[in-house]
Design a protein around this nucleic acid. Sequence first.
DNA 1: GGTCGAACGTACTAGTTAGTACGTTTTCAT
DNA 2: ATGAAAACGTACTAACTAGTACGTTCGACC
Lengths: 224, 224
Amino acid sequence: MSERLSEVRDSGSTERAVRTQGDILEVATAEFAANGYAGARVDEIAARTRTTKRMIYYYYGSKEGLYLAVLERAYAQIRRVERGIQIDELSPDEALRKIAEVTYDHHTTHPAFIKLVSIENIHRAEHLRQSDTILRENVTAITLLEQVIERGVGEGLFRDDIDALDVHMVISAYACFHVANRHTFAAIFDRDMLEASLQDSHRRLIGDMVVATMTDRRGAPSTQ
Amino acid sequence: MSERLSEVRDSGSTERAVRTQGDILEVATAEFAANGYAGARVDEIAARTRTTKRMIYYYYGSKEGLYLAVLERAYAQIRRVERGIQIDELSPDEALRKIAEVTYDHHTTHPAFIKLVSIENIHRAEHLRQSDTILRENVTAITLLEQVIERGVGEGLFRDDIDALDVHMVISAYACFHVANRHTFAAIFDRDMLEASLQDSHRRLIGDMVVATMTDRRGAPSTQ
DNA sequence: GGTCGAACGTACTAGTTAGTACGTTTTCAT
DNA sequence: ATGAAAACGTACTAACTAGTACGTTCGACC
C-alpha cells in the first residue's frame, strides 16, 4: 500500500502517467458535470478513459478525491483568466464593463465549471471547503474589482455604498444564471439564453447594468 | 395492480390519505433539495415519513414520479406568489422595483425551490419537460412584467431595447444566485449572502439595478 | 541484465438501493 | 352487515456500484 495519492503529477511521473491523470480529470469533469456527484459513476468515467478504474483509485484514492481534483482544476482555470484581465489604460466605468464582460464570456464558454459550482452548492460546499488551494487563491479574485471601484468612487463617478463583493456578486449572478439555469429557462420560456445571436446583447446588458447602477445616484427607496 | 398513480388526491381520498401524500411530498422535497436527485434516498424519505416506502410507490410509482410531484408542487407555490402581486396604483418604475423585490423575497425564503431548480438544470430539465402543468402555468409568469414595461416605454420612462424576458432573467439571476450559490460564496469570501442584516440592502440593490438600467438611456458600447 | 518501485490491468466483493410480492386493515356504497 | 376497493405494512430481491486483492509490465538506474 505504498501507493501515491499524489499532489497531481510529481517529478517522478512519466509522460504516460501525466497523460493518464489528465485524461481521467477530463472525463471525470464531464461525468460529474453531467450527472452530479452522486449520479456520476466511477465505472462510467473509467470506461471513457484510456485507462481503468484501478488507476482512478491509484491516483485519486476515492470518488470524493477525484471530484475534489476536478473541482480544483476548474477553479484554477478561471483564476488564470481573471489574472489575465488588462484594465490599466481604461477609465473606471470602462474597466468595470470590461471585467463584467470577461466574466460573462468565461462562464458562457465553460458550462462544466458552472455545473460543478452548482453541484458543489447543492452539497453545501462541503468539498470545496476542504480545498485550501481554492479558498486561498480565490479570495484575491476581487482585488481587481476593488481597485477599479476605489478609483471610480475617488473620481466621483461611482456611488460609494456598493462594495466590490456586491458588484462581483451581481456580475457572477448574471453570468452564472445564463449557464446554470439555461435548461429550465429554455423549457419554460423557449429561449436559449446561450444562443449565439443573443450573446452580444447579453454581454452588453450586464455591462450596462453594473455601470448604470454604479453611476446612478438616485437610489430610490424600497417599496417596503 | 389496480393501484393509483393518481393526480394527487382525488375525490375518493380519505383525510388520512391526503395527509400521507402531503407528508411524503414535504419530506421528499427536503431530501431531494439536500442531496440532489441521485443522492436522495427513497428509504431515507420513507423513514422520515409517518408512513412507509410502500406508500411512496403506491402514490408516486417511482423515485422519478415522486421527484416530479415535488417539482410541480414547488413551482405551483411560486406561481401563487406571483399571482398575488398588486401593482395597479404604482408607477412603472415603482412597479418594476416591486416585482424585483417580491421575487427576491420569495427566492430567499424558499431555498428548497431554488435547489430543486438547480438540480433540475444539472439534469438538463429532463424532468421538468415532462410536466405539462409547469410548462403551461409558468409562461404566463412574465405577462405582468410585460405590462409594466410596456407602460414604462409608452411613458418614455424606460428604454425600449430590453424585453420583459431579459428583465425577468436579470431579477431571477440575482435572486437565485443569493440562494443557489450561497455556500461556495460563503466558503470563498466568508460572507453569507442571506444574512438578515444584508437582506434590506440586497433587496434595494436589485430594485436599483433594474430601475437604473431601464431608465438609463446612454447604453454604452461594448468594449469589444 | 537485474532490481526496485512506479504504473498498470483483471476479476472480484461487500454493501447499498430502487423496487416488489404478499398480506392486512380501513373505508364506504349498497 | 357485506363486499369491494382504497390504503396501508413487512419482508424480501435483483441489480448496481464504490472500492480492493492480486498479479503484471514498464522504465530508470546500477
